[in-house]
Computed example of a mutant assay.
Amino acid sequence: MTGAVWEPAGAVEETLLGAAVADDRQLFFQVLASSDLYLPQLSGASGPQRFVTLHAIGQVFLPVFTSVRGLAARFGHAVDGYTVTNFAELRRKWPDPDWRLAINPGTPIGAYLSVDALVQAALGELQVPTLGELAETAERDELLDAELRQRHADASYPDSPDDPAALRAAVEAGDVYGYLDRLLDANVLIPTARPADPAEILADDEFPWLPGPDATVEVFTSVEALARRHPAGTPPVVEVALAFALAMWPEGHGIAVDPDSEASFRLPADQVLALLAFEGLDGSADGGS
């Protein structure tokens, strides 16, 4: 890119800039979905077309532009031509499902998203964040992670990692990493609809899960926590490693750990399996201390 101030080239880019200034994201993506797009070609390319790609934030992006001038400003030193296309054709011939679009990269009318997301955004079904919003979110995530790591470093725990007091200590310290480390290493008590053997959990259709009215399965890290939740009498329970139970978790059900206690923890159905992918600060899949 040169040091010149960016200006829109033509009516399409003027409309895009106006939509961006007004934060009318649906109009912005409707214009992109219905306009000509310019796909750069590599200098010296021979034989089958070779795509120019950009690599950022762990993703591969295919850059396209809404004007030849914008394309030349970004890639004029590296390309010897371009192909005129449109979004419908791009989507139909998309080269790799893992790639994403970089539309007008490096300009005030830039957008970075998947081809399917562009359709949703044009229909008003998806609010696509701006690059600035993504950067702000990433910065907040980094600051939060640094804070949680410091809380983990400052926390003090019982000598035995199996001590139930360790979970309470993690909650009191606000140590998310320490809490999940210990929770995923723990055996838990799971109330059931009838007496059952832990091995039955392997039979998805036969294990007597006992979800509540909100399709949430309760699990308990101690007999005391179970008794507090069911003071009138405890239901049948099985004792099983939480990590094992998560691997066989019933589809469409959330999880509530030690409800009605100071160390309670709850996740909706669409986030339960993410617990299995949790990596502790030592990089292990199930945490560890």
Results as ranks from 00 to 15, higher is better:
2 T>N: 08
3 G>R: 12
3 G>H: 10
4 A>H: 10
13 E>K: 10
19 A>V: 06
20 A>C: 10
25 R>W: 08
26 Q>C: 13
29 F>P: 07
32 L>G: 06
33 A>L: 07
36 D>A: 15
44 G>I: 06
46 S>C: 06
47 G>P: 06
47 G>T: 08
48 P>M: 04
52 V>S: 06
55 H>Q: 14
59 Q>H: 13
60 V>H: 12
66 T>L: 01
68 V>A: 11
71 L>R: 11
75 F>E: 02
75 F>D: 04
85 T>F: 02
94 W>K: 05
96 D>K: 03
96 D>E: 12
102 A>Y: 09
110 G>E: 14
111 A>V: 09
112 Y>D: 05
114 S>Q: 07
115 V>C: 07
118 L>E: 05
121 A>Y: 03
122 A>D: 03
125 E>D: 11
128 V>K: 03
139 E>N: 09
139 E>R: 15
143 L>E: 14
147 E>D: 15
148 L>H: 14
150 Q>S: 10
152 H>W: 10
169 A>T: 06
172 E>W: 03
178 G>M: 08
182 R>S: 05
185 D>V: 02
186 A>P: 12
187 N>K: 11
187 N>G: 09
189 L>Q: 13
190 I>K: 01
197 D>R: 03
198 P>Q: 00
205 D>V: 01
205 D>C: 04
206 E>G: 00
211 P>L: 05
213 P>T: 04
222 S>N: 01
225 A>W: 04
226 L>G: 07
228 R>G: 05
228 R>D: 13
229 R>V: 05
232 A>T: 01
236 P>K: 03
236 P>E: 05
240 V>Q: 00
248 M>I: 00
249 W>C: 06
252 G>M: 12
255 I>N: 07
259 P>T: 05
260 D>K: 15
261 S>P: 04
265 F>K: 05
271 Q>F: 07
278 F>W: 11
279 E>I: 00
279 E>F: 02
281 L>Q: 04
286 D>P: 02
